[in-house]
């Protein structure tokens, strides 16, 4: 079953392109990677601001993934004995739980949460870490820490 380009948002289109860009890079096909990078940039340039952008709405979407989206997909993966999908769902669900926890903690503590500490994201699975030094091996996908990158506060 194909994804329907006409039904996809600019951000969905960008994400499928950045994924294929990464695949081409791993195959050392620079020219093809560049084409997908250009496509992703084309779609990202069209991204619009959302009118319903509140923390509450963001947390509600994450909650919906955790309570129903991942469960439904996991059931299908179980029925199909599809271990590849199970793998992606397991990693994604764990990273999603960490995003939820990050937002809940930020809501409580505000700027104090990251006042004297770093925040890191794993480029492979989306694992999020708040602390000074990320773990040597990503606890979700087990990639070495050179693929876990700091996200810095930027002055406006």
């Amino acid at each position: 079953m194909d994804a329907d380009v006409r039904q996809m948002t600019w951000t969905e289109l960008a994400a499928v392109c950045t994924n294929l860009e990464k695949a081409c890079t791993k195959q050392l096909r620079g020219e093809e990677a560049a084409t997908f990078a250009k496509l992703a940039a084309f779609y990202e340039a069209r991204q619009e601001m959302k009118s319903d952008a509140t923390m509450q709405n963001l947390v509600a979407l994450i909650d919906a993934d955790l309570s129903s989206g991942y469960r439904a997909a996991n059931d299908v993966a179980e029925t199909d004995a599809d271990r590849g999908s199970k793998r992606a769902l397991l990693w994604g669900e764990k990273a999603t739980k960490l995003l939820k926890s990050l937002l809940v903690r930020y809501e409580k503590q505000g700027a104090k949460l990251t006042e004297n500490t770093g925040v890191f994201v794993c480029e492979i699975c989306g694992f999020v870490y708040v602390g000074d030094t990320p773990p040597e091996i990503c606890p979700i996908c087990k990639v070495p820490s050179f693929k876990i990158h700091p996200v810095r506060k930027e002055a406006i």
Binding site: A3, A23, G84, G92, T114, C125
Partner: peptide, 28 residues
């Protein structure tokens, strides 16, 4: 607020990475 912007950047990046992995498992 730089701290809120940082948190949002993290959510943005992580959500994209999770999405890319999902696309990877669906024919792409």
């Amino acid at each position: 607020d730089p701290s809120l912007r940082q948190i949002c950047k993290v959510v943005e990046m992580s959500s994209r990475i999770i999405a890319e992995d999902l696309w990877r498992e669906s024919g792409y």
